[in-house]
């Protein structure tokens, strides 16, 4: 289920990023390490689901047919999802969830800040709302990086493991295909290739402050934007889409 409108395709990618990460975060609901953090994580999850709805809603509007945001979220299969791979990795332990969140948050703040200047007024408006949320998410996730990195031997070990596992998935956040290059040229999309140096500086400074060693850059994985996913996305979608697949058109 694709659409020819490039802005709509771009909006679907951003919505997929938000939906998939939001779902991963929502898996923590009632399983957080303690009540306060459980609520805080669920809040972040809800921010992402809200973001997904806005991007899907706009994509649906631009697609010019009668699809709704729900059709995008619940009735597409893996190959149609264009989220970055880092978002679909299983939530892992708390250190993994927080390390991913931190790496993504640093990117999101810069990304949404830039998207606010998009020549597309709707994308710019969604970004204006999202950047405030991401600033708060980053405040939390950076804090946890320092806390876990400088905590116990176990928390340090778990965080280092998480960073090592995630590192090869980060370069994909700065890749651009023809669609994004073309939209960036028109001032619609963010030129993510330009965001990498600042991201690198910020992340390395935090990793150093958290007593983490910087992983070796000898592997990287990408393909999410082209629908080439890890095995984990299918499992996630079977959970996320179960209701609409089992009871098509169900409403409540």
């Amino acid at each position: 289920m694709s659409t020819d409108n490039p802005v709509s395709q771009y909006a679907v990618r951003l919505a997929d990023d938000a939906l998939i990460l939001g779902h991963r975060l929502s898996e923590w609901c009632s399983r957080g390490p303690f009540l306060e953090e459980d609520l805080a994580l669920s809040n972040v999850a809800l921010d992402y689901i809200g973001r997904a709805r806005m991007f899907y809603g706009y994509a649906a509007e631009l697609s010019g047919d009668d699809r709704s945001e729900d059709d995008f979220a619940f009735l597409r299969d893996c190959r149609d999802f264009g989220n970055l791979l880092i978002h679909e990795l299983p939530r892992g332990d708390f250190a993994f969830t927080m390390a991913r969140q931190y790496l993504v948050d640093v990117h999101s703040v810069a990304f949404m800040t830039d998207l606010q200047s998009s020549t597309d007024a709707t994308l710019a408006a969604i970004a204006g709302k999202a950047v405030k949320e991401s600033n708060y998410h980053l405040r939390r996730s950076r804090d946890w990086m320092l806390r876990l990195g400088g905590g116990t031997e176990e928390s340090h070990r778990r965080l280092q493991h998480a960073v090592d596992e995630l590192w090869g998935f980060t370069p994909e956040m700065f890749e651009m295909d023809e669609l994004e290059k073309s939209l960036a040229g028109q001032g619609v999309a963010v030129d993510v290739s330009r965001l990498q140096p600042a991201w690198d500086t910020e992340v390395r400074a935090t990793l150093a402050a958290a007593n983490m060693s910087i992983p070796e850059e000898d592997w990287q994985v990408s393909g999410g934007r082209q629908g080439k996913h890890t095995e984990w996305l299918g499992h996630l979608l079977s959970d996320l889409q179960f209701m609409q697949r089992a009871y098509p058109g169900l409403e409540w």
Partner: peptide
Amino acid sequence: SLHAEAHAQALEYARDVYTR
């Protein structure tokens, strides 16, 4: 009331728990 490690974290949790 709530539990937190320190003041800064308590402030963030207060935001998440009591100002939703």
